[in-house]
């Protein structure tokens, strides 16, 4: 196991990718390895990119990778795509936009499927970020699935959240709704050469103008950037330079105002929650499945012989012995 830790520390892609896979598959020994990796983390700047399907997240990441590489930074990318609820299969296609970096040893791109997670990420993402961190990646970019309004798990894992929007997706009511628009540290209006771009910008401005000042951490009001057509390389590259500079500025802001800790705290809470689920809830469920009890309970329940609350209380009484 120490051999594995050493290899990951040295940046070995095969070992890292295999470990991510074992975590996705829920293998116990992978968690044991994570125990050794966890204390070594804390180096990377983790950037979350979210937005609706087709907003251009993968293309922007491709551009950001180029921009960070020019500055001599190493980059990890975790790209999440949805798992089919019917077959369990998935098409992981984010990589298509990033393949020009495939041969750059300073870039490691790994695709993950959601496998039933609903928050816009895959369950293994938190650990995969740690692994890339231990590998020494300066920057870790996390791409969520194409999101709607509610998939906000990305804030639990990133230092900087970028919300990508495109013109023509709705009126000003959309902009005052709760959810995804609240989590942005930076807004990007992508495909801004399209009609409706300045209207979208105005709506976002109005939304931010109405937000309480206390919602801007140490005075960081999310800037609204624009990004032009990716097929016109000059403008695109320039937009990306500005974007990567703003990302750096945000990170410096977090450090300067001692805010990095609050983000790490948030992630720690989520990780502990997950780990408890994994160590407490899942073994109990597995036991009930294995001895057939769960099926019996479901049977009883569907015949209305009992109710789910009583059953859950019975199980809790049996397994939570303390007190």
């Amino acid at each position: 196991m120490m051999e594995k830790v050493k290899k990951i520390k040295s940046g070995d892609v095969r070992t890292a990718s295999r470990l991510i896979r074992h975590l996705e598959d829920g293998m116990a020994e992978a968690r044991a390895t994570m125990k050794h990796l966890f204390p070594l983390t804390g180096h990377s700047h983790v950037i979350g990119i979210t937005g609706s399907p087709g907003a251009g997240k993968s293309t922007l990441i491709d551009g950001l990778v180029e921009s960070f590489r020019k500055k001599g930074k190493t980059v990890g990318v975790l790209a999440v795509d949805p798992t089919s609820p019917f077959t369990g299969g998935a098409i992981l296609g984010d990589r298509i936009r990033m393949q020009r970096h495939a041969e750059d040893p300073g870039v490691f791109v790994r695709s993950l499927a959601t496998r039933g997670s609903l928050g816009g990420l895959a369950k293994a993402v938190g650990d995969a970020i740690h692994i890339m961190d231990v590998m020494g990646k300066d920057i870790v970019l996390v791409e969520t699935v194409g999101t709607g309004q509610q998939e906000v798990d990305i804030i639990n894992h990133s230092h900087t959240v970028i919300v990508v929007l495109i013109p023509g997706m709705g009126d000003e009511i959309q902009a005052i709704k709760a959810g995804i628009l609240e989590i942005a540290d930076i807004f990007v209006i992508n495909k801004s050469d399209r009609e409706g771009s300045s209207k979208l910008r105005r709506e976002l401005m109005a939304m931010l103008d109405m937000a309480p000042l206390s919602s801007f951490p140490a005075g960081w009001r999310p800037p609204i950037l624009k990004c032009d057509n990716a097929f016109e390389p000059d403008g695109f590259v320039k937009s990306l330079e500005i974007m990567s500079q703003t990302i750096d500025d945000h990170y410096q802001h977090l450090i300067k105002h001692d805010l990095l800790g609050t983000r790490v705290h948030r992630k720690s809470a989520v990780e502990l929650n997950e780990a408890i689920k994994c160590s407490v809830l899942e073994p109990v469920l597995a036991k009930l499945v294995a001895n057939g009890e769960l099926e019996c309970m479901i049977e009883k329940l569907s015949k209305k012989e009992t109710d789910p609350y009583t059953l859950a209380e019975e199980i809790a009484k049996r397994y939570l012995k303390a007190k």
């Binding site: 798992t83 089919s84 077959t87 369990g88 299969g89 998935a90 098409i91 992981l92 296609g93 990589r95 298509i96 393949q99 495939a102 041969e103 695709s111 499927a113």
Partner: peptide, 18 residues
């Protein structure tokens, strides 16, 4: 995908190295 696999599709015009 329909068979339940996780499929990574990388698109056209790839070099063997990529």
């Amino acid at each position: 995908r329909d068979a339940g696999f996780e499929v990574i599709y990388t698109g056209c015009h790839q070099t063997p190295e990529q």
